[in-house]
Design a protein around this nucleic acid. Structure first.
Lengths: 164, 164
DNA sequence: CGCAGATAGTTTAATATTAAATAGTTGTGA
DNA sequence: TCACAACTATTTAATATTAAACTATCTGCG
């Protein structure tokens, strides 16, 4: 609700942009969440499967970085996916601290079934934006994310956020 | 991680914009959350106090709409704020179904203390964007939100999202 | 070698959030 | 008048998420 706050022009602009960004993201998230729930996956679970599909097997720590989630949360997500037989844990033999998580055939089939519909839903949700606007949105959000990451240097790894 | 998916140009662009939007919002949210936690407020609690400060007393349903939260959640948020003595519940005498939530003097003092720092933090987080970019970001996110709302007509009220 | 410190994953406790069921209130129409 | 539909708020049960404590493993240095 931008915005009943009175401040400098810069402040008001930043606040308005911030709030609007959040409302859009919130709305998008709840739509996606509802859609995926109906298919029997949480957003987190979907994220894990999608990452494994497109990036290949990963250890849990790497998954956590990709999905911006805590280690404990990843453990639970992988637990639940494992119970459903969609992923498998493999203890790394070279360094036994690591566990590689990989898609089972069932999991690969599942995410391949679900993913296209997810993309289609996103494309539909983004349909009100022109090509130029999509490009601008991405550019600005990237710049924003990068700006924040630089500011507060407490990332777990320096490379993961800037690459890809 | 935009994006290892191969599709039409339109699909890839929509997906990239979507993912980047989310990562930015996620990062912003976790920063804000950490900052507010340190001050003894959750994001939800802050949202309630801020809404009451800038919009005046509201019933719980209206709060839920503003904050995009469920009724049950609002009940809990208000419970916790009430325990801290920051808000008060007043049963509407004309229509006893409604409960008006309003800031206590303590609550007003508290949110007035916390809000400027919050704004400052947001301005800092948005600092990497130019004035033009802030305007563009707001415009695009608004358009996006509006586009989604139109598509799926299941809003509780029609006016709340478009106004203010 | 052997221990100190770092790192990966798990567990635990607390909190937030939602959906669904429930209780109380209002207004309407037979 | 009264039964019923609509609506507000609360409760309940389930799930997601985090932070912090903990276990297991590895690496490097004395």
């Amino acid at each position: 609700m931008p915005s009943h706050y009175r401040g400098t022009e810069r402040e008001v602009r930043a606040l308005n942009a911030y709030i609007t960004l959040f409302r859009a993201a919130d709305t998008l998230a709840s739509r996606s969440s509802a859609r995926l729930d109906a298919l029997g996956l949480t957003i987190g679970q979907f994220g894990v499967l999608e990452a494994l599909l497109h990036l290949g097997p990963l250890c849990q720590r790497a998954l956590g970085e990709k999905l911006l989630r805590t280690g404990g949360n990843i453990t639970l997500l992988v637990d639940n996916l494992e119970k459903q037989g969609l992923v498998r844990r493999v203890r790394d033999t070279a360094d036994r601290r690591y566990i590689t998580v990989l898609l089972t055939p069932k999991g690969k089939k599942r995410i391949r079934q679900v993913f296209p519909g997810h993309v289609a839903a996103i494309v539909r949700q983004m349909a009100s934006l022109s090509r130029t606007e999509l490009k601008a949105l991405r550019r600005i959000c990237r710049k924003l994310g990068r700006g924040i990451a630089e500011k507060t240097n407490r990332e777990t790894t320096h490379d993961s956020s800037s690459s890809q």
